[in-house]
């Protein structure tokens, strides 16, 4: 095991990861103010050419089916056409993509990105199903494993050894990381979230997503834990999909019962995952690498 990592190590070495996107902080700051949201989102989008392109492409891909002669070029028209929730998700996901890309080597980056997106979509839909904030859940789902990025940048060989340990010996990734680093990615992620001044519920969701019993009263912790389980249960992590643990306490926190009522939730997760797949792929590391090679 390399020397045990502590909070100060993580704070001192924040630069191992890119700066946390301010756009997401601004979105987080106004989640409870729907009137401010549209104006704010449009102003955020208009500062970022990548976001402008994404939003116009989405708006036109929908518009062409119902009004073939219509071409949307105006950001306010586009935002009002495709809906606030979808705009917000695009802003969050595009910002997250910029943050996550280039942090891991290509093979790992692709899997990490797909898993983060799958858990994000599951968290968003689960939160809506249980009458909680879908936006905060989306961010928690996309960020839940951010500690793994830092661990990789800190000591790539030890990080890969932990993954091999997990794969060969069938142990949980947190145990393998604790053997290598003295701490696991959940604690590292929570320290990063603290250093970025992210809201307490988000920090706790990152910290407790493998052991939600330790924060049983916090819905976002329960949402993030169950979302990760659902992403595996529905096979959204590809061949890596494995369900090992589901917290009964987390289900109780959300008053979630596993009966016929979740069929709609599963269907919505599948539909949104399908709807977002092209977008997520276009933002992922593999596609970005292709674009770089093509000189785009």
């Amino acid at each position: 095991m390399s020397g045990s990592i502590n909070r100060d190590d993580v704070r001192r070495n924040q630069h191992l990861l890119p700066a946390f996107p301010r756009t997401i902080e601004r979105v987080l700051a106004t989640l409870d103010d729907p009137d401010a949201n549209l104006n704010l989102l449009v102003s955020l989008i208009e500062r970022d050419p990548a976001l402008i392109g994404q939003i116009l492409e989405q708006a036109n891909s929908v518009a062409v089916r119902t009004r073939p002669d219509m071409r949307i070029c105006n950001m306010f028209t586009a935002t009002s056409m495709i809906g606030l929730a979808r705009i917000r998700r695009t802003v969050i996901a595009t910002s997250m993509a910029g943050f996550l890309n280039d942090t891991l080597p290509p093979g790992l980056a692709g899997r990490f990105w797909e898993h983060s997106c799958a858990v994000g979509v599951c968290a968003q839909q689960l939160a809506i199903h249980c009458h909680h904030s879908g936006d905060m859940a989306l961010i928690a789902g996309m960020l839940h494993d951010v500690g793994q990025l830092w661990l990789y940048r800190h000591e790539p060989d030890a990080f890969l050894a932990a993954r091999d340990d997990c794969r060969i010996n069938g142990c949980r990734i947190e145990e393998a990381e604790r053997r290598q680093f003295g701490v696991d990615h959940t604690l590292i992620g929570a320290w990063l979230a603290e250093s970025w001044d992210l809201p307490g519920p988000l920090r706790n969701a990152i910290l407790h997503h493998h052991k939600p019993e330790q924060a049983a009263s916090e819905p976002l912790v329960a949402v993030t834990h169950i979302a990760e389980v659902l992403s595996a249960a529905l096979g959204l992590n590809g061949d890596d999909s494995r369900v090992t643990h589901l917290s009964t306490d987390a289900c109780a926190t959300l008053k979630l019962t596993w009966d016929e009522s979740v069929t709609g939730l599963f269907g919505r997760i599948d539909a949104v995952s399908q709807s977002m797949a092209g977008f997520f792929r276009s933002q992922g590391p593999a596609r970005r690498a292709e674009n770089a090679v093509a000189g785009n």
């Binding site: 389980v229 249960a233 529905l234 369900v243 589901l246 917290s247 009964t248 289900c251 019962t257 596993w258 009966d259 979740v262 069929t263 599963f266 269907g267």
Partner: peptide, 14 residues
């Protein structure tokens, strides 16, 4: 474990 079994049944049925 009952909660896990219930999730499994729901996914299988879906």
């Amino acid at each position: 474990e009952p909660t896990m079994a219930a999730l499994f049944d729901c996914v299988l049925s879906y």
